[in-house]
């Protein structure tokens, strides 16, 4: 099963982070990433830039959608990076999440990635079934 570890940080945590020795931060994060890689569980992972100039938000409450500078707005906990890992159990995902070198004010939101079997109960849904057959037979999207 795959899990996404979503890193969130409050403004305060981000300020603390900036005050820290950057080399030390890199070293700790590097060691964590290396451990994930060596254990064969890491599928992907990246940090997200937080400069206003690079980011924006598209809000679909209106038509056409409203584009604003972002991602700050009213967000108190900024989504600042992620890992995608493949593990054997929820407990193993929890073990890996617990080992992440983050400090106070930071949070990891851990979400399981959905799989085909999550839609098992809809396997008999005639629309899905028809779509499945059509897709398989046509070999197209």
């Amino acid at each position: 099963m795959k899990y996404m570890l979503i890193m969130r940080a409050t403004d305060a945590a981000r300020q603390d982070y900036e005050a820290m020795d950057f080399n030390e931060v890199i070293e700790k994060m590097g060691a964590y990433n290396e451990a994930l890689l060596k254990a064969g569980v890491m599928l992907a992972g990246d940090g997200l830039a937080d400069s206003m100039a690079d980011n924006f938000v598209v809000d679909f409450s209106a038509d056409p959608p409203i584009v604003t500078d972002g991602p700050y707005g009213e967000t108190h906990e900024l989504f600042s990076g992620f890992w995608m890992i493949q593990v054997g159990s929820k407990e193993e995902a929890m073990e890996w999440a617990n080992r992440c070198p983050l400090g106070p004010g930071s949070k990891l939101e851990v979400r399981r990635v959905t799989e085909m079997s999550d839609f098992g109960e809809f396997a008999d849904n005639p629309v899905l079934k028809q779509q499945e057959t059509w897709r398989a037979e046509s070999g197209q999207v």
Partner: peptide, 24 residues
């Protein structure tokens, strides 16, 4: 993701929906 139908029957290579192959 493209090799079996929801009921478990296999879909052969030629008939697979390639949009369901895991690009990552």
């Amino acid at each position: 993701g493209a090799r079996v139908r929801p009921d478990g029957t296999p879909i052969l290579l030629a008939d697979q929906d390639r949009s369901r192959w895991d690009r990552a």
